[in-house]
Amino acid sequence: MKNRENAKGYWRDNIKYVIILLAIWFAVSYGAGILLKDELNQIKIGGFKLGFWFAQQGSMYVFVILIFVYVRLMNKLDKKYGYDE
């Protein structure tokens, strides 16, 4: 029974992380790079219009960071629930 509870807790935490990370994933690509592009293009950083930068550069950097954050979070979670190996 304790095993079951443990697995449930692990899964709940995992889902929470996934939802938060995917919300960021959506916000940078579909949000900043597509839906809000025109508004963000009013802002300029160096030679880049911000919306354009998110679409062709920024979103991809964030994607990489998201996966490595997930790797870290999950490694910690594995340890916390004793699933580390």
Partner: peptide, 19 residues
């Protein structure tokens, strides 16, 4: 700008894959 569909499309999938 439209080329961004390939840039985001072919990289963002890896986030789905990993998570």
């Amino acid at each position: 700008y439209d080329g961004a569909v390939y840039l985001m499309g072919w990289t963002g999938g890896y986030v789905l894959l990993a998570l």
